[in-house]
Amino acid sequence: MADERDDNSNKPEAPPDPGRRKFLKGVGVVGAGAAIADQLLLHASEQAKPAAAGGASVEQGAADVVLNVNGQKRTARVETRTTLLNAMRNHLEPQVSGPKLVCDQGTCGACTVLLDDKPVYSCLVLAVDATNKKITTVEGLGTLGKLNEVQTAFVEKDALMCGFCTPGFVTTISAYLKKNPNPSLDQVKEACKGNFCRCGTYPHVFEAALSAAKTIAMNNPLALGTESEVRS
């Protein structure tokens, strides 16, 4: 199954199938096919070649964006190259820093947010592309006083240690349980395969996801989806 966050189909302006991992941003960075070639190019462009003196190439232009984050319209002035993640973390006032910056290249899932209810890596979305969309971060899923079922299950099952990956996992799983309210263990693993945890919370994360699914089912028996709705 393709990771849902691989899917750029909701971005009409995107070139055909850019693929999340080749979508590199910034100045002078070139995406290439093979991983090793990628690395060599990164080395060459990022480090070895200084930009033209005067730094003329950096003029990216500023943009005033209105971001609809967790039900609130928030404005910020960003550069057009600023990612949604950096806009939320560095430009919104007050900041939205639940989503974490970890790899900045769409591998780890710590920056996962929901864009019109679909999980995306916010380090791979430009802020200017996220206007007119509904953005939900981990802060919007539940609050300290009222955790959602997934957050509650994470607390109970000890599905976090350092917790740096946790916002990403909570967001991914919360969205997945809407799509598939009655997942198997393997489906949970599949749903979170785009999220890394270095502390090693995976087994407790799986338990938490399955337990949250049970709680949700108990709380709203009518919300159970039928098997055919479940994308495999």
Binding site: S97, G98, E139, L144, V155, D158
Partner: peptide, 22 residues
């Protein structure tokens, strides 16, 4: 089994790490 006292902060994104200090 004691659930972590900082878990609610961490599952809601409210925990401020050094990386989040602005």
């Amino acid at each position: 089994n004691i659930t972590r006292v900082d878990a609610p902060l961490k599952v809601t994104g409210a925990a401020i790490y050094s990386y989040d200090v602005r």
